[in-house]
Computed example of a mutant assay.
Amino acid sequence: MDNLFKLLKKKVLVVAEIGCNHNGDKQIAKNLIKAAAESGADVAKFQTFNPDELLTIDAPKALYQIKATGTKETQFERLNRVKLNEEDHKELRDYCENSNIIFSSSPFDHQSVDLLHELEVPFFKVGSGEITNLPLLEHISSYGKPIVLSTGMSNLDEIKDALNAIGEKNRKHVVLMHCVSDYPSKWEESNLKVIHTLRNTFSLPVGFSDHSVGIELSLVAVGLGAVIIEKHITLDRDMIGGDHKASLEPDEFKSMVEKIRKIEAALGDGIKRYMPSEKNVRDIVRKSVVASRNILKGNKITDDDLAIKRPGTGIKPKYLNKIIGMTATVDIAEDSLVQWSGLK
C-alpha cells in the first residue's frame, strides 16, 4: 500500500495518460507505452470501462468530443469501439512491466475496479467524473489501495463527500489531483492556486492533471508543490479521437519530464544553507576586521584602529566590539586582517 507514497517522497510521479488515445488498437497502445517509457514517464495509464455499465445508449458527447470526432458515431458506439477487454489489459500490463513503466488505469464501474485489483495495480486513479459516484468510491476503497482522486468540475463540499465515502482509514492514502475538465483547458481557467487550497484544506498531498496545451502549467504546478503530474500522451495530435488535441507528442512529453526533473533539483530540500559552489564567492565578497593603521605589539586596541573590509577570511565583523579593548600580542600591519592569535 505504501509503495506509491514511498515513491512520492523520492520524486514527482509523472503519469502518461494514454486513456483512449490508442483508439481501440492494441498495437497503438503498445507504441504509446513504449513512447511513455522512453520519455521518462513513471506510469502509463489507461481507462477501464464497460460501456453497458458506464452510460446509456443515447448519452450525449461533450462539446470537445463533438469537435474532435463529429456526430456520426455516438458516444456509446465510440466507447464500444475503443474499450479494452480483460485479455488486452493483461497483455498491456505485461508490456508495461517489460518496458519498465508502471501500469495503471482508471475504472468507471465496479467490474472494472475488480479487474484492476486482480491485475495488481499499485493504486486506483479515479477520474473527475466519478467524484460524486460515492458507491464506486466505497467499492474502490474496500480494496485498501492508495487512491489518486481527480477533482475536476467539483467544489470543496463534493471533495469532502468523496473523502467521507473513501473512509477515515483509507483517507490517509489519498492523493488529490487538481484539474480543469476541458480538453484542452484554458490557461486563464487553470486556477493553479487551488493546489495550495486543497493541500491546506484536506492535509493531503496534491497533484495536477494537466489538460492544457503545452507543458508550462505542469512545470508551474511542480513549483507549487504538485507531487504527481498527469498529462495526456499521443503519437500524433492529428489522430482522430477525443483527447489527442489536449495531448503531448512523445518528444514534447520527454521535454516536459526533463524539465520537471530539473525543477525538482532546483526546489531542493528547503534547508537554508550556503552551497559548496558559493564558498569562493562568500570568502571574497564578505568582510573581516582589518587594521586601519599600524598597531604595535602591546597596544590596547581602539575603535580607530579597526575597519571592516573584504575579504571574508578573517574575524567576522560581528566580533568588532569584542576586539576593542583587547591587547595586540604582535605587530599588526595597516590594512591586514586581524587574527585572534594576535590578540589577548
Rank of each mutant, 00 (worst) to 15 (best):
P276Y: 07
N31A: 12
L4S: 02
A266S: 14
L156C: 05
D157Y: 15
R273C: 12
H244R: 09
K30L: 09
L134E: 04
F124Y: 12
L119C: 11
D2R: 07
A307V: 08
N3W: 09
I159R: 03
L134S: 10
S255K: 15
Y274S: 14
I18A: 00
V206W: 00
K287S: 06
T329D: 07
C96V: 04
T197W: 01
E189I: 10
L8Q: 01
K193T: 03
S209P: 03
I18Q: 01
D88P: 02
L137D: 10
E168Y: 02
K145H: 14
Y274M: 15
P311F: 05
F253Y: 11
D238M: 09
V12E: 00
A226G: 14
H173M: 09
V148Y: 00
L267N: 03
L224C: 04
K61C: 05
I102W: 09
K34I: 13
I33R: 02
D238S: 13
M239T: 02
Q111K: 12
E249P: 01
K172V: 07
K30N: 05
L13I: 13
N294K: 13
A62N: 13
R78G: 08
R81H: 11
F46E: 08
N98S: 15
K297Y: 10
A68H: 08
M239D: 06
E53R: 15
A266R: 11
V15S: 00
G325F: 04
D303K: 10
N23I: 10
K344F: 12
I33M: 10
C96M: 02
K145R: 15
E189P: 02
R171C: 05
G270T: 05
A333F: 12
A68F: 06
E138G: 12
V174E: 02
I271F: 08
E249K: 03
K245L: 12
E87A: 06
V175F: 03
Q75A: 11
S105M: 08
G70E: 02
I147E: 01
Y183R: 12
E120P: 04
A36M: 05
Q111G: 11
V227T: 15
L198S: 04
G270Q: 00
S105E: 07
A226R: 04
M275L: 14
E118W: 03
P60N: 03
F103G: 01
F5D: 07
T302N: 13
K272P: 11
K297M: 14
I263Q: 10
Y319P: 04
V174A: 10
F46K: 00
R199I: 01
H110M: 11
C96R: 02
L32I: 03
A36L: 04
E230V: 06
C96K: 09
V113L: 00
E73Y: 08
D25Y: 06
Q75G: 02
H110F: 13
F76K: 09
G270C: 06
I57C: 05
N164C: 11
D52I: 11
H196Q: 13
S277L: 14
D269N: 14
F46H: 12
V148L: 07
K287H: 01
D305K: 08
S142H: 03
E120Q: 15
H89R: 06
K287Q: 09
F208G: 02
L337D: 05
I263L: 15
M275G: 02
K172L: 05
